[in-house]
């Protein structure tokens, strides 16, 4: 565990670039949105932007990099795969919690200022409204975990099985999703699928289902990394 903490600290040796980039991009996105919607000066509109997504995408990329770049580096420094994995998860869960807390606060400010004075909805949870404060917080945090573990899992497939592994994974995903959507169209399932999504609560969409997907990704990633070579 000590060693895992060391790995977590190791990820932050250049912390300004680790923390700085995601927030810089999010800030940029926010400023652009403010400027654009501020200029439109249309008070009837209550715009919801997808700008918040940028920080989640950054987390995904950071987790990809943690496997393709930090993993070989850490193993070269005599860290075990288990310690690397635990330490890596530790640091990105810490980031997810911290980031979620900041986003939550910004959303509170956003509400209090009536959308920064121009009824802009930038930091508020997308699509849905979640009342319970804890669930609302998790609504910010859990998607970070899902995207993070997705990045780790995809990078590990590449690390362990190379380009062929990636091609196989992509092909399988295309055939799987393509096949399912063809099937759905053919069987006229789309309205039912739409209804299912509409019936789900915001908490289920942002917390429940992502958490359920995250767990197997985390478990499989651990098993894969134990036999991966740097």
């Amino acid at each position: 565990m000590n060693r895992a903490l060391t790995v977590a600290r190791l990820q932050f040796v250049a912390w300004p670039s680790v923390v700085g980039w995601p927030w810089a991009i999010l800030t940029l996105s926010f400023v652009i949105n403010l400027a654009v919607y501020g200029a439109m000066d249309d008070t009837d509109l209550q715009p919801t932007t997808g700008g918040l997504l940028s920080i989640y995408v950054m987390m995904f990329v950071a987790c990809l990099n943690s496997i393709t770049q930090v993993f070989p580096f850490a193993l070269g420094l005599g860290v075990s795969r288990r310690s690397f994995y635990l330490g890596n998860v530790l640091q990105f869960v810490a980031q997810a919690i911290g980031y979620a807390a900041v986003l939550y606060l910004l959303a509170v400010v956003e509400e209090a200022t009536d959308g920064w004075g121009i009824r802009l909805r930038f930091f508020g949870l997308p699509f849905v409204w979640v009342e319970n404060p804890l669930l609302r917080f998790l609504g910010y945090a859990i998607p970070f975990l899902l995207l993070g573990f997705l990045g780790i899992a995809i990078a590990l497939v590449f690390k362990r099985w190379g380009v062929n592994g990636m091609l196989t994974l992509t092909t399988a995903a295309l055939i799987g999703f393509g096949g399912l959507s063809v099937l759905a169209t053919w069987q006229h399932w789309w309205p039912a699928i739409g209804r299912w999504f509409a019936d789900q609560s915001g908490a289920a969409l942002l917390v429940g289902w992502p958490a359920l997907l995250t767990l197997p990704l985390a478990a499989v990633s651990y098993l894969v990394i134990r036999r991966a070579t740097p």
């Binding site: 250049a14 670039s17 990099n65 770049q69 930090v70 070989p72 580096f73």
Partner: peptide
């Protein structure tokens, strides 16, 4: 040996 691309020598 490769190093994470965001690191400088001192890191």
């Amino acid at each position: 040996q490769t190093y994470p691309s965001n690191l400088a020598v001192r890191h």
